[in-house]
Nucleic acid binder design. Structure first.
Length: 432
RNA sequence: GGUGAGGUGGGUGAGUGGCUGAAACCACCGGUUUGCUAAACCGGCGUACGUGGAAACGCGUACCGCGGGUUCGAAUCCCGCCCUCACCGCCA
């Protein structure tokens, strides 16, 4: 959620930035609407507080009359009664103002919820994913798969690594069951990613996988993206779509010390996504599933250097992909494809050698104060007033598509080779 | 699932319906004293919104789990909700 004061002070920039997102003129109009409503809001608050101040003054006066016993004399008694009547009248007026105020505030709030984050100046304009800027690409030819060049879902069957039919039996489609060396490989990747993050200074977190409404609201899954999450209705808990949700919320309503920043956290969790309404070859195999594993890195950063931290996170993710020898490219998302809450996002895609297409495996973003404003995560520099922190996060990495690309690329006529860095974790180097 | 207790500032913890934004202590920050450290002493020490100011800061309003009610006036009384803790039962 954008800050009203920011919108007011930077109206032109906000409008210019938001235009990159291809918003309707109606939504763009919210900017001025919010500024207008905020003016009305202030005027009303002024009136209300003036009246309340008068009520407090009168109440004190009446109290004084009673306390000192003066109210027993006729003159003072009349004064007290007159005071009471005035307070009653004032309160009636206040109630009226407050009703108006609450309507205006709700309206401001609703409009603010509709406004996405202002894209960073680096964000290219564009309508959708075809307009994303290729920020970094592999040098040379894209590798071709060895062996029979099977897609990963066939490799999964051939080597008994994962089983979709079994998942359907137990739960439903999109819930793969990993078995034997497939399971071991999965576990190896998780441990490898975690260890790398810990070495890079991240603190490991194992958060709850179910979160309450306040938490889901904090990172912006609620109110609009309700359909994305599984909901345990009886207890009103949501299954997390990403570890970002519980981990970022650790600091909800907190004021952290500037010296503690950047706060770097990493968490492995399963992620649950309902992803209603997607069909076709994009969802085949591990390309898109309802439950998947992911290692997520989260940072709470000082606004002064949050973009340095973003760069640091990019290199971290690059390091992982290099270690696994997977060909990848980095996209800088354009305004049309940029997530609602993000100011700048880089997507990492790995090459699926058998499917001959790019698969998104990581999304690294700086949300600036968009999330922290909603969650009220602030920091204090010395004795200064608290200011909102910047929040950042990135996948490091999402497992299924890494698994897919890795299996396809490393297949040979003898079997599937395990990347060297994973062998200490798997204790086998070939899947036969 | 059953029963009981309780939710006050960073922490512990007082608080009679008006003098309580809230005692006291601890922590923290600044200072004085002091061979050094420590101790002692003095002072400061919440947040949000509104308003004035270049700023320092001043003024106003709100906040003692959340929401509502009673009252001229509520941390204090009443109602609803949420949460926490303890014990019992069940259980990985």
């Amino acid at each position: 959620m954008l800050e009203i004061n920011y919108i007011k002070a930077n109206r032109e920039e906000v409008l210019k930035g938001l235009k990159k997102r291809n918003l309707s003129t109606e939504v763009l109009g919210y900017v001025d609407k919010i500024i207008m409503l905020d003016g009305k809001r202030r005027a009303l608050i002024g009136k209300i507080e003036e009246s309340k101040s008068e009520v407090n003054r009168l109440s004190k006066e009446i109290g004084e009359l009673f306390r000192t016993g003066q109210a027993k004399t006729t003159e003072s008694a009349e004064k007290a009664i007159a005071g009471k009547e005035m307070v009653t009248e004032l309160k009636r007026m206040i109630t009226g103002y407050e009703k108006k105020l609450s309507k205006i505030e709700t309206s401001i709030q609703n409009h603010l919820y509709e406004l996405p984050n202002v894209p960073n100046s680096l964000v290219p304009s564009g309508a959708g994913e075809d307009d994303n800027e290729v920020f970094k690409k592999v040098s040379g030819e894209l590798p071709t798969p060895g062996g029979d060049g099977l897609p990963h879902w066939e490799l999964g069957i051939k080597y008994k690594l994962f089983d979709f039919k079994l998942g359907t039996k137990i739960t439903g489609s999109g819930f793969p069951v990993f078995t034997a060396k497939g399971a071991a490989l999965q576990r190896a990747l998780i441990s490898f990613f975690l260890d790398k993050a810990i070495k890079a200074g991240y603190t490991e977190i194992i958060p709850p996988l179910l979160v309450n409404e306040a938490t889901a609201r904090g990172t912006g899954q609620l109110p609009d993206k309700e359909g994305q999450m599984y909901h345990a209705e009886k207890d009103n808990f949501y299954l997390i779509p990403t570890a970002e949700v519980p981990i970022t919320n650790i600091y909800r309503d907190d004021i952290v010390n500037a010296a503690e920043m950047p706060i770097k956290m990493v968490g492995y969790t399963p992620c649950f996504r309902r992803e209603a309404g997607s069909y076709g070859s994009d969802v085949k195999g591990l390309n898109r599933v309802h439950q998947f594993d992911k290692v997520e890195i989260v940072q709470i950063a000082n606004p002064d250097n949050s973009y340095d931290q973003l760069t640091e996170m990019l290199s971290h993710v690059e390091g992982l992909l290099n270690d696994l020898n997977l060909p990848y490219r980095i996209l800088r998302l354009c305004g049309g494809d940029l997530g609602f809450t993000s100011a700048l996002t880089y997507d990492f895609e790995v090459w699926s050698a058998a499917q001959k297409k790019w698969l998104e495996v990581s999304s690294v973003s700086n949300f600036e104060t968009f999330q922290s404003n909603r969650m009220k995560i602030r920091y204090r520099e010395g004795t200064e007033k608290p200011r909102l922190v910047h929040t950042l996060n990135g996948s490091a990495l999402a497992l299924p598509r890494i698994m897919a690309a890795m299996l396809e690329l490393n297949q040979t006529s003898e079997g599937i080779r395990v990347p060297e860095v994973l062998v200490p974790y798997t204790s086998f180097d070939l899947i036969q």
